[in-house]
């Protein structure tokens, strides 16, 4: 991998992140109702001069009365120093919220990817090497089911079935992995499974189609002609080359997972970034929403950057593209 390639990718990273941050900032302010109005009217009050004064005061306190460009520049300058401001809702630094919530969501995302890969890649291989057999059909039906069921449905169904058949549901009290790995996994494994079921479907299908393409290539035929066993041909020679697009896909999904996590975190009562984001959005807690979406964008872009490097390393042709 050439240093020029790395430098170019890194340079593209910066304007992309900047663009994302501007987009987050502007979109949030286009949503009707700001925090000042919400704080004043949340108890169902009616507009009056007192309410209007209170709204003006809150806007002044929070700096919302300044032009949006000034607000953005202030925010961006502080964000570069790692200061995302104070949460309007929780009245504490947003960095504290991020420190508390981000690791939990990352853990859930990682667990999801691990489960999905452990499950989806072997299924894709089975489906490809046993093409058009009952095993292939079964795997394809499973994939279609995973793709057709939205995560919220899978999550609620899972919760319902656990309670219905075992009279049990995952623990409601969150315990960190460092405090008790077992208790932590008891809670996180279920939302991870619900998400993994969803994302494993495209991984399975992609593995299958790529493997089908690769095992028809000359070098695989040569390997077979040399008398190598089928397992060795598939796993040693074909699978590695089929997984390149899968790696890209998983990277892309890894970033998207943080966004999708909102729903499963609410269903399974996981106090991660997703559930915090949902509350912050509903209350127009701008600093918290901006920081959380920014972190999501950062993770998404970061993973994609790593995937690009990985891809270039795995496939030497990429560096010249």
């Amino acid at each position: 991998m050439s240093s020029r390639y790395i430098a170019r990718r890194l340079l593209m990273f910066v304007p992309t992140l900047l663009g994302a941050s501007i987009l987050i900032f502007v979109i949030l302010r286009l949503v009707p109702g700001d925090i000042a109005e919400i704080l004043v009217y949340q108890s169902g009050g009616e507009r009056s001069s007192i309410q209007e004064t209170q709204i003006t005061q809150i806007r002044q306190e929070l700096g919302l009365d300044r032009p949006v460009v000034v607000q953005y520049l202030d925010w961006a300058a502080a964000a570069m120093r790692g200061d995302f401001g104070q949460s309007y809702l929780q009245r504490r630094p947003v960095t504290e919220i991020l420190k508390e919530r981000v690791p939990r969501s990352l853990e859930l995302a990682l667990l999801t990817i691990v489960i999905a890969m452990l499950w989806a890649v072997p299924l894709g291989v089975i489906s490809a090497v046993r093409q058009n057999t009952w095993a292939d059909y079964l795997v394809r039906v499973l994939s279609i089911s995973g793709l057709s069921m939205p995560i919220f449905f899978t999550g609620v169904l899972m919760l319902y079935l656990l309670v219905r058949f075992f009279g049990w549901m995952p623990p409601l009290e969150f315990v960190s992995f460092t405090a008790s790995p077992v208790e932590n996994l008891k809670q996180l494994i279920w939302p991870a499974l619900a998400q993994a079921f969803y994302i494993s479907a495209p991984i399975t299908r992609l593995t299958r189609s790529q493997l089908l393409e690769v095992i028809r290539q000359d070098y695989v035929r040569t390997a077979r002609a040399k008398g190598l066993g089928e397992q060795r041909v598939v796993y040693r020679h074909a699978l590695g080359n089929s997984l390149l697009p899968v790696v890209t896909f998983v990277g892309w999904w890894g970033g998207r997972l943080l966004g999708g996590i909102v729903i499963v975190e609410i269903i399974f009562s996981v106090p991660g970034m997703g559930s915090a984001l949902a509350t912050a959005v509903s209350q127009r807690d701008y600093p918290a929403v901006q920081a959380m979406v920014f972190v999501m964008a950062l993770v998404f872009l970061g993973i994609n950057l790593v995937v690009d490097f990985l891809y270039a390393w795995l496939d030497p042709r990429i560096r010249y593209a």
Partner: peptide
């Protein structure tokens, strides 16, 4: 007091005796 935002989670917690 568990903070349970979702309706299905609230009902599941009641049914599971949590």
């Amino acid at each position: 007091q568990f903070i349970l935002v979702g309706g299905p989670t609230q009902l599941a917690a009641a049914k599971a005796g949590r």
